[in-house]
Design a protein around this nucleic acid. Structure first.
Length: 435
RNA sequence: GGAGGCGUCGCCUAGUCCGGUCUAUGGCGCCGCACUGCUAAUGCGGUUUGGGUUUCAACACCCAUCGGGAGUUCAAAUCUCCCCGCCUCCGCCA
C-alpha cells in the first residue's frame, strides 16, 4: 500500500506510475471516487454516533435520580430521550454498515495498486532493462580447447545433483543435492552467513509456512499469486522467499529510529509453483519448485532507503565476486518490477553453455509499500510514520551452484573451487569425479 | 488432542462479579519545564494508535480503539456466543 494522502495531493503521480508499469490507470480514478465516498460515509457515522453518545450521557444520571425519587416530569423526559436514542441507534447502525462497506471497497482497490515506481527505473517491459555494468570476463573455452558441459552433466559426473530421482519422488522440477553437491550448499551457506554477519546482519532461520496476512502484506497475493503454494487444509502458504517471514516479523510494531537500520539475513527453503513457465529451463536446477536461499532484509528510514539499496547491491556483488563468477548488473524496467518494488537491480551470472547472462540475485527497494500493509512504523522526532523495507538475495543455492559448476569446470569434469569457499570445505581446492 | 488459567493505550497494573462522567487507575520508563556548580533527587506538566473536521500550519474538536469478530442494549473493557494467542498440567512426538 502507498500513502493514501497522495491520492488527494497528487493523484497524477499515481496515474503516471501505473502507466509506466503497464497497469490499469483508471484504477486511480475509481480509487479517488471510493476515497471520497469513504470519508463522507465515515463522517456521517461519526456525527450520528456523537449525537447518540450525547443522549446516552443524559440517560444514566436521569435514571439514577428517578430510582431514588420518582418524578413524573423527569420520567416523561427520560421516555422522550429513550425514544430519541432508539431511533438514533438504528441510524447509527445503518451508517456504520455503510461506512464499513465504503471502507472495504476503498481497501480492496488499494490492494490492487502496486508501489509507485522510481522515476529512475527504465520504462518498459521485461526486455527493456538497462545494463549498469559487467564484472569479470567469461572464460574462452574454445581457446582452452574443450566444450563446456552444462551444470547437470557436471553434477552427474560428480554425483552431486540427481534430478531423475527428484522427479521420481516429487515430480518434475525437484532434485536432490548429494555428496559434494550438498557439501557445496553448506559451504555456500556458511560463507554467505559469515559475510552477512560481518555486514551487521542478524542471522535468522524463518518459518516456511505463513498465514495469509503475511503473504498479503508482502504483496505476493497480487499478480504473483499463481506462483504461491497454498495449503488448503490449514489456510496457510508456503513462502517463496524468507522475505515474507522477515518482513512480517515486525508487523504491527513501532520501532524506535535508534534501532534502525535493522538488518536480517534469513535462511529458508523457498517454494514456487513456477506456473506459466512450462517448457522453460526444464533441464537441470535453474528453475525448480523448492530450493534454499539466504536473503538479506532491511528495515530502515524512508530517507535512507535508496542508499541502503545501493549497499545491498554492493553486498550481493561482493558475494558473487568472492565466488569468482563473471556477471552483469541490470536496472530492471518498470513493467517487470513486481508489485511491491519501486526499483530493482538484478545480478545475472554468465552461463557458458547458454552463452547468456541469467538472473542469480535480485534486490528491491520496496520503500514504504510493505511497511504500510504490515503496519510497521518508526518513531522519531517527526512522530510515528511508516518505515522503508528492502530485500536482496545473498545466495540462492541452485543458481549459484549452476554458476560455480559451469564457470569453474575442467575438461575432466572436475570443478575448481573458488578460494573463498575452500575454508568451508576442509581446504579442498577442487571437486573431482570419483575414479 | 484433553483439562484449567490468562489476554487492558511501550512494560507492569486497577477496573470486569453487579453495564452508565472509564473522557480507562496507579507505578516504571520516556519527553518538556522548574529547582540545582554538574549529576542525582524532587516538583509540575505531557506521553496508545488510527481515521476525520477545521486550519497555511499549530492548537482545538469529533469518531474508533481494552487479543479479533459477531450479538444483546438507549448505552459494553464490563453481559452472551464464536475465533485467535499465551501460560500450567496431561497425552502424543522429532
Amino acid at each position: 500500500m502507498i500513502d493514501p494522502s497522495i491520492l488527494r495531493t497528487d493523484p497524477d503521480s499515481l496515474r503516471e506510475s501505473q502507466r509506466r508499469r503497464g497497469e490499469d490507470v483508471t484504477l486511480i480514478d475509481r480509487l479517488v471516487e471510493a476515497d471520497v465516498a469513504k470519508r463522507a460515509a465515515g463522517l456521517r457515522f461519526d456525527e450520528l454516533r456523537s449525537a447518540q453518545k450525547e443522549i446516552g450521557k443524559q440517560i444514566g444520571p436521569l435514571q439514577g435520580s428517578l430510582k431514588k425519587t420518582p418524578d413524573a416530569a423527569k420520567q416523561a423526559e427520560l421516555d422522550a430521550l429513550m425514544a430519541q436514542a432508539s431511533t438514533l441507534a438504528d441510524q447509527v447502525k445503518a451508517a456504520s454498515a455503510e461506512a464499513d462497506e465504503m471502507q472495504a471497497l476503498a481497501d480492496a482497490l488499494w490492494l490492487q495498486v502496486s508501489n509507485v515506481v522510481s522515476l529512475e527505473s527504465p520504462v518498459g517491459g521485461e526486455a527493456d532493462f538497462t545494463v549498469i555494468e559487467h564484472v569479470g570476463t567469461p572464460r574462452d573455452f574454445a581457446a582452452e580447447g574443450f566444450e563446456p558441459r552444462d551444470h547437470l552433466d557436471i553434477g552427474e559426473i560428480l554425483d552431486a545433483i540427481d534430478t531423475g530421482r527428484g522427479a521420481k519422488v516429487s515430480g518434475s522440477r525437484f532434485f536432490y543435492l548429494k555428496g559434494m553437491g550438498a557439501q557445496l550448499e553448506f559451504a555456500l551457506l556458511n560463507l554467505a552467513m559469515q559475510q552477512a554477519a560481518e555486514n551487521g546482519f542478524i542471522p535468522m532461520i524463518t518459518p516456511s509456512l505463513v498465514l495469509p496476512s503475511a503473504m498479503e502484506g508482502t504483496g505476493f497475493l497480487g499478480q504473483a499469486a499463481e506462483n504461491v503454494y497454498r495449503v488448503e487444509s490449514d489456510d496457510m502458504y508456503l513462502v517463496g522467499t524468507s522475505e515474507v517471514p522477515l518482513a512480517a516479523y515486525h508487523s504491527d510494531e513501532i520501532i524506535d529510529v535508534a534501532e534502525l537500520p535493522l538488518r536480517y539475513a534469513g535462511w529458508s527453503s523457498c517454494f514456487r509453483r513456477e506456473a506459466g513457465s512450462y517448457g522453460k529451463d526444464t533441464r537441470g536446477i535453474i528453475r525448480v519448485h523448492q530450493f534454499d536461499k539466504v536473503e538479506m532484509f532491511v528495515f530502515t528510514t524512508p530517507e535512507e532507503a535508496e542508499a541502503e539499496h545501493a549497499r545491498l547491491l554492493q553486498w550481493e556483488k561482493d558475494f558473487i565476486d568472492a565466488l569468482e563468477i563473471p556477471y552483469r548488473v541490470i536496472d530492471v524496467a518498470t513493467g517487470d518490477l513486481g508489485s511491491s518494488a519501486a526499483r530493482k537491480f538484478d545480478i545475472e551470472a554468465w552461463i557458458p553453455t547458454q552463452q547468456a547472462y541469467r538472473e542469480i540475485t535480485s534486490t528491491s527497494n520496496t520503500t514504504e509499500f510493505q511497511a504500510r500493509r504490515l503496519k510497521i512504523r518508526l518513531r522519531d522526532e517527526q512522530g510515528v510514520r511508516p518505515l522503508a523495507t528492502l530485500n536482496g538475495t545473498l545466495c540462492a543455492m541452485p543458481r549459484i551452484i549452476v554458476a560455480i559448476l559451469e564457470n569453474h569446470q575442467q575438461p575432466d569434469g572436475s570443478v575448481v573451487l573458488p578460494h573463498a569457499l575452500r575454508p568451508f570445505l576442509g581446504g579442498k581446492a577442487a571437486f573431482t569425479p570419483r575414479a
